[in-house]
Write a protein that binds this DNA or RNA. Structure first.
Lengths: 176, 176
DNA sequence: TCTCTTTCCGAATTTAATTCGGAGTTATAT
DNA sequence: ATATAACTCCGAATTAAATTCGGAAAGAGA
């Protein structure tokens, strides 16, 4: 047996164990149905229930899993209108007031963005009247220069962060 | 994937009891933490565990609750880049190919939209190179005329559909 | 009023989550 | 090489929660 070169420096001592293939397979199931039991998950990935539990617990602690939540249906909640609103604001200091809009349950996402727009909002309202009401509130905020609203007519896909990565995207080639 | 026509589902089912205040309070908790036990939920809303269970079961069946899922951290999954891509396509028949992009785990949302754009995509990738790779694949699709990409610099809020409704929005006034 | 339906509760049961001790593995240091 | 420490796993035992069940209370409609 040849001795390995020990020159390599290993410096991951205090870092959390990285997410491995089994972790991603577990997460792949849980992003679709988090009511799956540890026993079932174990059968899928070839581990015992306590082993899966241990992994999930670790990922929760490391905040790779941010939360377990129910996904609601917009229409059933009485919110038929979905819109993306691009907000152009004068001066970056006023972003605070805009972010405060997150208090409203109609606002689901707030991102600052590149391009010709400062903020992107995802807003789901009861109807077009409520959306208009929201836009009025937006213009009431000091510094809001302009907005562009894109109303979603149909939603073909809507889901959270997926654990898989398409490595071929970073190579310019086709899907593996 | 075809957008789900919930109207028909509603018709076929016997008149479902509508979502009441207690239901919304339960959902409000579950959208933040679906690991909350029925006993705890019951204590919060003044019901027994079986009563809460019954309500949740009903809402699942009625698909007001679409699923229970884990919310993952994009960075922890190795996806640091978030972008919204507006796609303008020539002819509506080609939408099928675009919707097929939903196969990629990087694609989180696909909506058809009003405005000067046909589709809005929400895409989360490893880095800018992978995002560029994705854009190349987009342009490979027949009929894609142009795209506009908005990269999210910071995310201030990101959550699912909320059960509460701000009624004052539909009245043009202030928050109640 | 009577009946049908819905919603709820407490108790009992079933199922799953969680804990625990120890075996096997790997990495690191002596 | 060998010991040490740190992981990861498993099966068994325990604890906690989900689920089922029968029947009581409340409401709707005839």
């Amino acid at each position: 047996m040849e001795p390995k070169n020990t020159d390599q420096i290993q410096k991951n001592t205090k870092t959390q164990r990285s997410i491995d293939t089994i972790d991603r397979r577990i997460l792949s199931v849980l992003t679709k149905d988090a009511t799956t039991s540890y026993a079932e998950l174990g059968a899928m990935v070839g581990l015992s229930a306590p082993a899966v539990h241990e992994r999930v617990k670790r990922m929760r602690k490391a905040e790779a899993i941010k939360a377990t939540v129910v996904a609601l249906d917009g229409k059933a909640m009485g919110k038929s209108f979905l819109a993306f609103i691009h907000v152009e604001a004068r001066g970056w200091g006023k972003t605070t007031e805009l972010v405060a809009l997150g208090q409203l349950p109609e606002v689901e996402e707030i991102h600052s963005a590149t391009g010709d727009t400062g903020l992107i909002l995802k807003v789901r309202t009861e109807n077009s009247v409520a959306l208009e009401g929201f836009l009025w509130r937006l213009y009431d905020i000091e510094g809001v220069r302009s907005t562009k609203t894109y109303v979603a007519l149909s939603t073909y896909l809507e889901r959270g962060v997926q654990p898989e990565i398409t490595h071929s995207l970073a190579e310019g080639g086709n899907i593996k």
